[in-house]
C-alpha cells in the first residue's frame, strides 16, 4: 500500500476538456487531454501554436476566465480534483504548492511596482519571515536565474528590464516557494543558450532536491530532449502522442510529431526553404469530423474520417492515429 502511494503521481490529468463559449461559437481549446507527472519528473508538453497548451496550464491552475469553462475530465493533484475546488481553495494552492510561469512575463509582473516590492510581497504572502529575510531570499533567487547585480536590480521597474530579464524574474518568482508542481509556459523562449542552460540547471536541481514535478510547455524540441522525462504532443486540443522522450523523438509514431521533428531548422540546409507541414493550423471552431490532422496528413485514408481513439499501440507508446508510423511504414513513404 505504501509503495503504491509513493508511486502515485503528483498530478494526473484525465480527459480534460476546456471550452470557450464565444459569441461566434464554441472554441474547444482543450478537448481530451490526459497525462501525469510524478515527483521530481519533468513532462514536456509540446504542440502546434494554438493547440491548447496554455489553456491546459490555465485549467490546472484554475485560471480559465469567462467565457471559458472546464466542461469535462479531472485534474488530480495528490488525488484531489482541482477542477472541483473553490476559487478560494485554488488561490491558496496557487503560488504556494502550485506555481505557474506564464508565457507572457507581464502576466506575473505588475508594471507599476518595483521588482523588490513584488518579490518581497510574494515571499511574505505565504511564509512568516521578516522583510529583510524576504529581501535576502528574493536576491538569492534572482542570482539563481542569472540576473547580475541583483541588489541594484531589485530596485528597478519591469520596463527597465530586457525581455529575457523579465522572463527570468517571472521564473524567480515561481521558484521562491519551492512548490510541489510548476507549470512553466514557454519560460525560456526568449533566452540565449547560456542563460537557458543556467536556468535549466537550476530547474533540474530543484526537481531533484525537492521533488518538484514540472510541466514544461515549449515548442523547442531540443529543450525537451535535454530536460524532460516524458513528452506529450498536442494537436488541435488533443494529446496525439505520449511516451518517454527518447523513443518518441527517435521514432515518432504520429504523423504530426514526425512533421514537427522534421521542421527543426538545424536539420535543414542553409538558405533553402525550411520543411514545413503543409496546410494551415485548423480553426478549432470548425474542425472536420474524425482526425483533425487529416487535411494535412500524407497518410490519411477513408478511415481517418472517423473518431480516432487514443491508446497504446506499442509498449509505453500511446498515439491517436489509425496508421501509426512504425519504421517499416516510414521506409515505404520515403
Amino acid at each position: 500500500m505504501t509503495a503504491l502511494t509513493a508511486a502515485a503521481p503528483t498530478l494526473e490529468v484525465r480527459n480534460l476538456q476546456t471550452h470557450f463559449f464565444t459569441r461566434a461559437g464554441v472554441v474547444k481549446a482543450v478537448d481530451d487531454v490526459s497525462f501525469s507527472v510524478g515527483r521530481g519528473k519533468v513532462l514536456g508538453l509540446v504542440g502546434e501554436s494554438g493547440s491548447g497548451k496554455t489553456v491546459t496550464g490555465f485549467s490546472i491552475l484554475g485560471l480559465v476566465d469567462e467565457p471559458g469553462r472546464i466542461v469535462g475530465g479531472s485534474i488530480l493533484f495528490h488525488g484531489q480534483d482541482l477542477a472541483k475546488q473553490s476559487e478560494e481553495q485554488m488561490r491558496q494552492l496557487r503560488g504556494n504548492r502550485i506555481a505557474m510561469i506564464f508565457q507572457d512575463p507581464m502576466m506575473t509582473l505588475n508594471p507599476v511596482l518595483r521588482i523588490d516590492t513584488q518579490m518581497i510581497e510574494t515571499v511574505q504572502a505565504h511564509t512568516k519571515v521578516s522583510k529583510e529575510e524576504a529581501r535576502q531570499r528574493a536576491r538569492d533567487t534572482l542570482g539563481m536565474v542569472g540576473i547580475p547585480s541583483p541588489d541594484e536590480r531589485l530596485k528597478s521597474y519591469p520596463h527597465q528590464f530586457s525581455g529575457g530579464m523579465r522572463q527570468r524574474v517571472a521564473i524567480a518568482i515561481a521558484l521562491l516557494h519551492r512548490p510541489e508542481l510548476i507549470v512553466a509556459d514557454e519560460p525560456t523562449t526568449a533566452l540565449d543558450v547560456t542563460i537557458q542552460a543556467q536556468i535549466l540547471a537550476e530547474v533540474q536541481k530543484l526537481c531533484a532536491e525537492t521533488g518538484t514535478a514540472m510541466i514544461w510547455i515549449t515548442h523547442d524540441l531540443s529543450v525537451v530532449a535535454g530536460l524532460a522525462d516524458d513528452i506529450a504532443v498536442m494537436y488541435a486540443g488533443k494529446v496525439v502522442e505520449k511516451g518517454e522522450v527518447a523513443p518518441v523523438l527517435d521514432m515518432p509514431l504520429h504523423p504530426y510529431t514526425a512533421g514537427l521533428i522534421g521542421s527543426v531548422p538545424s536539420r535543414n540546409k542553409r538558405g533553402e526553404p525550411l520543411k514545413q507541414i503543409p496546410g494551415m493550423t485548423p480553426n478549432v471552431m470548425r474542425l472536420p469530423p474524425g482526425c483533425a490532422f487529416r487535411t494535412r496528413c500524407a497518410y490519411a485514408t477513408e478511415v481517418c474520417k472517423q473518431e480516432v481513439p487514443f491508446g497504446e499501440v506499442a509498449p509505453g507508446r500511446e498515439v491517436r492515429c489509425f496508421h501509426p508510423l512504425f519504421p517499416a511504414k516510414q521506409g515505404e513513404a520515403a
Partner: peptide, 11 residues
Amino acid sequence: VAALDVSIQAQ
C-alpha cells in the same frame, strides 16, 4: 519567431 512551434516558424 521565438514563440512559434517549428513548423509555423518554418512557414
